[in-house]
Write a protein that binds this DNA or RNA. Structure first.
Lengths: 341, 341
DNA sequence: GTGAAAGCGCTAACAC
DNA sequence: GTGTTAGCGCTTTCAC
C-alpha cells in the first residue's frame, strides 16, 4: 500500500512550516488568505487527510463512540443504533459497534477492547446493564471504565456512575392499559414473555399489576408467563402455557418477536386475532406491520432516543453535565391485532 | 476524567526502562522471567491498556475494519454484519460500522471518514457498489481508497481494484427453479420486485429467463415487475401490478421483505398461499419464519459469508493475495409458502 | 537481556 | 501571521 502523504509533505510543497498547515487543518488560528488557499489546493490535490491517530494522541480524542449492543439483528437495537449513528455523525463522531450476544465473557472482552481503542465514550444497549440482579463484578468493570470515559446506558446499573436514558415504562404500560380499556370486553389479560431479571420487563409487569387493580381488573397469575427468550420461541412457549390455564381476552407480549410466537401458538389452537384474542406488544419494529393482522404495538421515537443517548455522550465528553436519567416517552400505534369487533 | 496510566508509569514503578515494558506488551523480544512477572502484575494492578493510538502511529495499524452497509436495519445486512464482526474479533479487529442509507453523498462522506480514521481495511456491503450503472466518480473514489488500504466488496465495481465476495446468483436461481420444477402445476411464474440497476437482481433475472427457456417454460413479460424498493411497499406494488395482468402459479420475490408485501397484496385479492399462488423469496431472514405461511427462501450461510469478507480483508492487510472473486453458495429452505397441495 | 534514543504525524504553546 | 520546538504514548533499532 502506498505511503500516506503527511502534513510535512504538504508544508514542504507549499513552502510553509508544518504549523501553518496544521492551522488551516484545525482552523484554530489565523493564516493569510494566500497561504491558506495554496495549502487547501495541495490538500485537494493529494487527497490528504490528517492522521487522526496522531491528532488523537495529542488531543486524546478519537471522535469514536463505542457502542455495545446485545444483538444488532434485533430490529429494536438496529433502529436504535442507526438513530445513534446519525446523531453521532452530526456531532462528528463515528461508531464502533460491538455485539455481545448477551454473553458475559464476550461483553467484558469487548468493553476492554473499546477502552483500548480509546473511544471517547461508550454507549451500552442491553446485555448485562439490563439485568436487575446486579452483577457486581460487571458493575465494577463499568465503574472503572466510567472513571476514564463517559458511559451512557439504557437500563440501570447501580452505582456505576453512568448516565441513563430509558423508556418510560410506566407510561408504556399506561398506554397499553388505556387502549385495552376502550374495549369493555377485554377483561382477562395475559402477559407473555420476558424475563423477571430484565429491569424494563420487571417494571412493565409491576406497573401492569398495579394498573390492573386500579382499574378493578383481576390479575391471573397463571396467565402471567415469563420466558427468557425475547423471540418467537419464547412467545410460542409462553402462549402455549397460558392457554393451558385458560383463554384470556387480550395478550400483552413483551416485544414484537414474542408476539409473532404468540400468534403462531394461537393459530395452532384455532384462535383468531383479534376476534378470539387480541394482542398488543412493545417496540413497534417492522415485524409489527409484516405480520397479519398487523400488531398494535408500543413504540418509541428511535431518532429521539438515539439522539438523547448520543447527546448525553457528547456533552459528557465535552465536560458538560447531563441529567442522571432521561426518560423517553413511548407511544402506542393501534393496528389490527386489537381492532374493535 | 482521570489521566490514563502509561507505559512510563509502569516502567518507573517496575524499575525498568519503557522498552522492557514494551517488550512484554508486544511479546516481540525476550525479557527475564522475573521482570516480566513484575511488569505483568503492575499491568493488572492498574488495569493498564496500551494506547492503541500511539501504537498505531508507529505500526500504522489500527486493528479497525471499516464497514459501510446500506442499512443495518435490514436483517440481511444485520446478519452479515454480525458474522463479519465475530470473524473480525477472532482476528483481533474491531468494526467501525457506517450506514449509507443508499445516499450517495453520505456514502462519499463516510468513505472519507473511514479513511481519516485510518481503518486497516474497508468492507463495502450494498449501496453504490451494488449498482450496475457504474458511477465513475464513485468508482474513482473507491479506487483511490483501495490504493491505500484493502477494499473488499459484495457486488461489483468495475476496475476499482477491489476483492469481491459474492453470492452465486446462478446457483441461487437454479435452486429456485429446481424447487419449482418439483410441482408440475407451477407453470406460470412471476418475478416481483428489485431494481434492474442492482447487479445481483439483474443477474437473478437473467438466469431466470434463461432457465425458463431451458425448462420449456414461458416467460411472461407482464408478470416480471421490478420495483426500486426492496421492502413491503415494493412487494405490494409489484404484486398488485402483476395481478392486473394475470394470475401466476408461483411468485419469486426479490427478498423476504418484498415477499411480505406480496403476501399482503395476495391477501387483499383473496388469494391464498400456497393454495392459489406459491411464493419463494431470497435472503432467508427471520421474516421468513415470522409470517404465515412461512416462506420458502434462498438463504446463505452468513457466518461463512462474513468470514470470507473478513478473511479477505485481513489477508490483504497482511499483504497476502486473495482471489479476485469468491462465490458464496446459497441454499434453499423449503417452507409452507410452496408446500405441495 | 536491557536501556537510550529516534521518531510515527500531528497539535499547541512559545517566540518573533 | 508564522516558524520553532516540545511532546502525545508507544515501538524499534542500536549499542552495550
Amino acid at each position: 500500500m502506498a505511503k500516506s502523504i503527511t502534513i510535512v509533505d504538504i508544508a514542504r510543497e507549499a513552502g510553509v512550516s508544518i504549523s501553518t498547515v496544521s492551522r488551516v487543518l484545525t482552523g484554530n488560528a489565523k493564516v493569510s488568505e494566500k497561504k491558506k488557499r495554496a495549502i487547501q489546493e495541495l490538500i485537494q490535490k493529494y487527497d490528504f487527510r490528517p492522521n487522526l491517530l496522531a491528532r488523537g494522541l495529542i488531543t486524546s480524542a478519537t471522535h469514536l463512540i463505542g457502542i455495545l449492543a446485545a444483538d444488532i439483528r434485533n430490529p429494536y437495537y438496529a433502529s436504535l443504533f442507526t438513530a445513534c449513528e446519525q446523531s453521532a455523525n452530526d456531532f462528528g463522531y463515528n461508531m464502533l459497534l460491538c455485539n455481545s450476544f448477551s454473553d458475559r465473557v464476550q461483553e467484558f472482552a469487548l468493553l476492554d477492547s473499546l477502552a483500548r481503542q480509546r473511544v471517547d465514550a461508550v454507549i451500552l444497549l442491553g446485555g448485562a446493564v439490563d439485568s436487575l440482579t446486579t452483577d457486581t463484578e460487571y458493575a465494577e468493570k463499568v465503574r472503572q471504565l466510567s472513571a476514564r470515559i463517559p458511559v451512557v446506558i439504557t437500563g440501570a446499573l447501580a452505582d456505576a456512575g453512568c448516565v441513563q436514558v430509558n423508556i418510560d415504562a410506566e407510561q408504556a404500560m399506561a398506554l397499553v392499559m388505556q387502549h385495552i380499556a376502550q374495549q369493555p370486553a377485554f377483561q382477562k389479560i395475559a402477559f407473555a414473555g420476558g424475563s423477571h431479571d430484565v429491569i424494563f420487563t420487571a417494571a412493565l409487569r409491576a406497573h401492569w399489576k398495579r394498573m390492573l387493580s386500579e382499574r378493578g381488573l383481576r390479575y391471573y397469575p397463571e396467565l402471567d408467563v415469563t420466558n427468557p427468550h425475547y423471540n418467537e420461541n419464547g412467545g410460542y412457549a409462553a402462549m402455549n402455557e397460558i392457554l393451558q390455564h385458560g383463554k384470556p381476552d387480550v395478550v400483552i407480549a413483551i416485544n414484537d418477536f414474542t408476539a409473532v410466537g404468540v400468534m403462531q401458538a394461537l393459530r395452532e389452537h384455532g384462535l383468531r386475532i383479534p376476534d378470539d384474542i387480541a394482542l398488543v406488544s412493545f417496540d413497534d419494529t417492522y415485524l409489527a406491520t409484516a405480520v397479519q393482522p398487523q400488531l398494535t404495538s408500543v413504540g418509541y421515537n428511535y431518532m429521539q432516543f438515539g439522539n438523547a443517548l448520543v447527546s448525553a455522550a457528547v456533552q459528557l465528553i465535552n465536560g458538560i453535565a447531563f441529567p442522571a436519567e432521561t426518560l423517553i416517552q413511548p407511544r402506542l400505534i393501534a393496528r389490527g391485532s386489537t381492532e374493535k369487533r
